[in-house]
Amino acid sequence: MSAPFSWIRPEPHGIHVVPADCWIDPSRAVDRALVTHGHADHARGGHGATIATPETLAIMKLRYNTDEGTQAVHYGETITLLGNVSATYIPAGHVLGSAQILLEHAGERVVVTGDYKRRTDPTCPPFEVTPCDIFITEATFGLPLFTHPPIEEEMAKLLARLAAHPDSCVLVGAYALGKAQRVIAELRRAGHHEPIYLHGAMEKMCRLYEEFGVDLGPLRLVSDHTKDDMRGHIVICPPSALNDRWSRRLPDPITAMASGWMRVRQRARQRNVELPLIISDHADWNELTRTIEEVNPAESWITHGREEALLRWCQLHQRRARALALVGYEDEDD
């Protein structure tokens, strides 16, 4: 009998599940990878085998051309890996297909959250609290200043600005996978049924969401339309295109960005954002701490972002915790 939890090892390039000879979200190519979701800091091509939800596999096929050696696992489904390890995929509420992975071995339970949030999101099923011994949590917004307002408020801000400038368009920078589709779906929920114009880089992912049953309403491509068509409308582009020459084809765009970082004024300033929309697909500080309380693990391992503050919170609340130093996780666009 080996030492407790010696079968799971955080390494700089991912979490190594030793007896199963596989890795969770490895940042370099490995023989066998369990992938939580399709964002580039978690998913990559080149693995021998890729095990993920059908949605995540579809996203990976689109983005990284991952085709061979894939194994689909549905939410709630448990698969058996080598070395008597089992893995269960559980909704994480982050983006389409995103999953937490519950690993069980020798009576010990470890949950890897990947990225997650606790707010309702019309584009993916909600996060499920799963009891475990070790909870490996993200901490992208792990500072107490990050509290995301209700998304309805941010949508109201966006629609009010649009209504006040009927001759302009509002250009919303949003991460192409997840954020863009959630913003569109939330606009529809808020009663906005006008066509929404897309940067070319957004199109395929939106179509993929629709194939998985997410209704996004009427979508148009910017490249098919004139300036005048887009006056008084919302245009969505990846954050990198916000201050790009590309936006010159738009009618007097008001620059908005949908991101949790918009909580901090200077972050918005640095991107020349005129209308900051605090919308994130990650848990905010209160959700991170509430989730640790609800999951109530024996120990929390903290990664992806501002580990120090969450570690401090755990200390203050007499909870065992440690920070992991994984390479390559810096989700600046969310």
Partner: peptide
């Protein structure tokens, strides 16, 4: 500790 980590991130005492 949470205050100084936050202040360091934001870079502005008033905003933090």
């Amino acid at each position: 500790v949470l205050w100084s980590l936050s202040r360091d991130f934001v870079g502005d005492t008033a905003e933090t």
